[in-house]
Design a protein around this nucleic acid. Structure first.
Lengths: 192, 192, 192, 192
DNA sequence: AAATAAGCGAGACGGTACGTCGAGTCTTCAA
DNA sequence: TTGAAGACTCGACGTACCGTCTCGCTTATTT
C-alpha cells in the first residue's frame, strides 16, 4: 500500500484547472488553447497541470468528456427505439458548446499520436461496441434481426455521421436528426 | 483585359511547393508541418508560399486534394451500384497516404475558422450533394425510390463514416467496406 | 570614345530618387530608410536605384551632401576669423534637417566598410585639410603663427566637435558656438 | 522588503550573453550583429536576451562599456596633466577592439532613438562633466584658470575629437595624441 | 525601316533577421 | 511533495528588407 509522501495534491487545484480549460476552449477554440493560459486563468502554475496530464489532448479530453459512459444502456422494447436513444445521447454530448469547440482539434491530436489513437478505440469505441452488441442481442432474441450484424460498420456510421455533422459541417442539429439517422441505419440492416 | 504587370509567378515554384508539402505531410504529419520546412525542402523562400496561400490549411488542402471533382458521375444502372462507386471513390481519395496523414489536422483547422468552414460546404459538400441528387433522380425515374429523400442526412452518413474510419480509427480499409456501407444506406432509404 | 548604347538614363528619375531619399530620411531616419520605400515614393523601380548607386550609404551621401566643397575658402584677414567662417560652414551643413537625420547612421555605415571608410578621408578630410593648410600658410605669412602646426589634430577637433554636438548630443546649436570653438582652437595652437 | 518570486535569473546566462556579444561584435561588426547569433553563441534562447534588454543597442552598450566611471578622477597637480590623463582614459576605452568595432553603429542607434539619446547625456556626458568641473575648480583654486569656463564646449571637443578619430577616421592612435589634444584645449582656454 | 541594346515600373524570387509566442522543463521560496 | 511564480532552451510564427531576376514596354543608336 503506497502512502502519500509529502504534501497531498489539492483537489481544488484539479477542479480549477478543468473549469478553466472548459471556459477557454469555448472562448478561444482548441487550436489556440495554450497550457500557460489555462494555468493563468486557473490561478495555478503550469507544473500543476503537467503533473496531472501529459499534454493538452489528455487534459481537454478529461475536461470536456466526463460522463461518456454514465448513461445507462437504453431498453425501449424495440431496436429502433434503443438506437434512437443512443444516437440522441451522442448528439447531446457532442453538441454541447465545449465539446463542439474541442472536438475537431482534439480528434486531430488523438489521431496524430498512435498512443492516443489507441485510446479512441479503447475508451470510446470498445464500450460503445459492447453496448451496441447488447442491443442487437436483445433485438435478435425478439426476432427483429438476423444474427450476422456488421457491428463495426454500424458504429463507424453512427459515430461518423454525428461527428461529421457536429464537428465539421458546424450546422445546428435539426430536430429529428437522431430519429431519422437511427431509422435509416436500422432499416438498412434489418432488410438484410 | 488586364495584362499581367511585373514578373509573373513561376509555375515551377508553385509545383515545387506543392510537391514538398505532400512529401512533408506524409513524413511528419500535419501538426508538425512547418511552413519554413516546406520552403526549405522546395528550395523556395517563405514569402513565395505566403504570396500564394494565406496559411497552412489552404496550402495543404490544395496540395493534397487536387482531383476532388475530376471523377465522372457513376451510372451503373442500379442505385446501389452507383452509390458503391461513389463511396469507393471517397475511400480511394481519403485513404491515400498524404490525405490520410493530412485529414484530421486539416479538418480541425478548417472547422476552427468560419471562413474555411464555409469552404468545406462549398468546395466539398455542395458538389457532392448535386451528384447524389442526380443519382437519386435517376433511381426515382427507374422506380427504385420514393421521392422524398433526406439527401443531407445521406451525405453526412457517407462522408462521416468514411472520414471517421480513415481519419480517426486509423485502421486499414477492409475489402468490402464500400459495398457494405452503400448497401446499408441504400436499403435504409429504399425501405421507408 | 564610347558612345551611349540603348536608351539613356532619365534625368528625372535621378532627381526623383534623390528627392524621395531626402524626404524619407527626414521622416523615418536613416536606419529605417528602406530602398524599396524610396523607390515607391519616387515612383520608380528598385533597379533604377541599384543601377546608379551600390547601396544605401552612397545614395544617401549623394542625396544629403551635395555642396560640400562649393563654398569658397574664407579670407577675412585674421586666422581666427577664417576658422570661424569654416566652422560656421560645417555647422550650417551638418545641422540641416536631412543631414542631421542622416549623419549618425551614415557615418556608421561608412565606418563599417573599409572601402567607404576611405571615402571619408578622400572626399571629406583631404579637401578640408588642404583648405586648412592654406589658412595656416596665410596666417604664418602674416606672422600669426609658428610653422609646425598639427593640422590633422585640428581637423579632428573641429570636425569631431561639430559632429559630436550635432549628431549625438542632438541639442540645438547655441548661437556663438562657431566663434567660441574657433577661438579656443586657434588660441590653443597660437600659444603653442 | 519584497522577496524575489519565482525562479531568479541565472547570473551565468547574463555573463554568457555579454561575453558572446563582445566576441561577435568584434568578429562581425555592430551592423551584422544578430540577436539570434548572440543567443546561439551563448547557448541561450533569444527570450533570455529580450527579457533583460529591450534591444541590440542597450545590450551592446552594457557589454562593451562596463568600466566607464570606474577610473578615479585624476589629480596630477596641474590642469594640463589632469586633462591629459582624462583624454588618455577616453582613448584607452574607445580604442579597445570591441569598443572600436561597436562605436559607430552603436552611436547611430542611440542617436536615432530619443530615449536612448537621453542616455548618452545622462550616463556618459553628465558624469564626465562633473569630473571636468572638479578639475577646473581645483585649477582655479591654484590660480591656473579664470572662472568662466565653457565646460560643455570643452566636453564636446574632447569627446568629439576622440570619437571622430577612433570611430570614423579609423586610423591607429598616434603616440602623443592625448598630450597634444589636452595641451591644445587647455592652452586655448587658459589664454582667455 | 529594322535590329539592337539599354532603361524603366512592377513585382516575383531566395535569403536572413526580426520580435513574439507557446512548449515542456527547471529552480527558487513557502506551505 | 505540492504549489505559484517565473526563468530556461527550443522551435515556429508571419513580416520586412535585402539585392537579384524576369516580365512587357519604351526610347535611344546603329545598320
Amino acid at each position: 500500500m503506497t502512502s502519500a509522501l509529502g504534501r497531498p495534491r489539492d483537489a481544488r487545484t484539479h477542479t480549477a484547472i478543468l473549469a478553466a480549460t472548459v471556459e477557454l476552449v469555448v472562448e478561444t477554440g482548441y487550436g489556440s488553447l495554450a497550457i500557460g493560459n489555462i494555468a493563468t486563468r486557473a490561478g495555478v502554475g503550469k507544473d500543476a497541470i503537467y503533473r496531472r496530464w501529459p499534454g493538452k489532448p489528455e487534459l481537454v479530453y478529461e475536461a470536456v468528456f466526463t460522463s461518456v459512459d454514465a448513461s445507462p444502456i437504453p431498453d425501449t422494447g424495440t431496436l429502433i427505439g434503443d438506437v434512437t436513444v443512443l444516437v440522441a445521447g451522442l448528439l447531446d454530448e457532442f453538441a454541447a458548446p465545449a465539446a463542439a469547440a474541442a472536438l475537431p482539434g482534439l480528434l486531430a491530436d488523438f489521431a496524430a499520436q498512435p498512443a492516443l489513437r489507441a485510446r479512441i478505440r479503447e475508451d470510446f469505441l470498445a464500450p460503445a461496441k459492447s453496448r451496441l452488441i447488447e442491443l442487437f442481442d436483445r433485438a435478435a432474441a425478439r426476432g427483429e434481426l438476423s444474427t450476422d450484424i456488421p457491428v463495426d460498420l454500424i458504429l463507424d456510421s453512427l459515430a461518423g455521421t454525428v461527428l461529421f455533422h457536429v464537428g465539421l459541417v458546424g450546422a445546428p442539429v435539426p430536430p429529428g436528426l437522431a430519429d431519422r439517422l437511427a431509422e435509416m441505419i436500422v432499416l438498412g440492416i434489418q432488410t438484410r
